[in-house]
Nucleic acid binder design. Structure first.
Lengths: 118, 118
DNA sequence: ATGCAGGTTAGAGCTAACTCTAAGTCAAGG
DNA sequence: CCTTGACTTAGAGTTAGCTCTAACCTGCAT
């Protein structure tokens, strides 16, 4: 898979993908004879997971830490599981908080409505 | 209410509060004889609402736009209601997306568990 | 052989949202 | 009178995460 297709598949710009590789988030990307990146479907799975972590509020720094454990092999499975569990719990809490915010916004909107058509 | 107490009540640092006032998010803050800010409980309600919008992903730029409408008086009620409704809908969508992410994380963690204790 | 599409690099530049610094004012207590 | 501490300002500095630029390669079609 070339850069164009990988960018389309992942939803990230070529600029962003090169940046991710540069900071170490995408280790082991192969190159073809002319020095162009040759992405695999495994790379795609990994970058999709990165996006999931990012979209749920994990910083690139923390994702990088996870990435390094992953690159270090099976002996880090336990630590990786722990990181994911903590992140999952944080996400759960955030969703709950956001549901409270949603309720408060709904209440405010209802208040606006009552002012509009009294 | 002086800066120290307002900062404690709002959970924002004095630096951040001055910054918010500077960019126009906190209009009409009164001053006492020696030029110090004198916050009211109405200011506190407003800054709490700002924090709610921010915590649900609204940029300070958009909050500022809302703030300017609020300062412009009752004639902007309809537009303010519209902004809130759009934001509420976006939040709803985001919560739903996050719930999918949560499920995916749970699945990944379950997978890790199965590797650990086969 | 030439021009174009699609890559490559190092490194500069950008935006949002703070966060801090320096230098100063003011009121009250010892 | 002098110090202490809480405040003030303008403006500089920081961080995260991109985003872009300039200059350069490479392979293919006209």
């Amino acid at each position: 898979m070339n850069m164009r297709e990988f960018s389309a598949q992942s939803g990230l710009s070529a600029h962003t993908l090169r940046y991710y590789e540069k900071i170490g988030l995408l280790p082991g990307i192969q190159r073809n004879a002319s020095g162009h990146r040759a992405f695999t479907s495994r790379d795609l799975e990994w970058v999709n997971f990165i996006v999931r972590l990012k979209d749920t509020g994990m910083s690139l720094g923390n994702i990088l830490a996870y990435s390094k454990l992953r690159a270090a092999g099976d002996s880090t499975l336990g630590r990786r599981q722990h990181i994911l569990e903590e992140h999952r719990d944080a996400l759960k809490t955030r969703i709950e908080t956001e549901q409270l915010h949603l309720k408060a916004l709904d209440a405010k909107i209802t208040h606006y409505r009552s002012l509009k058509a009294p």
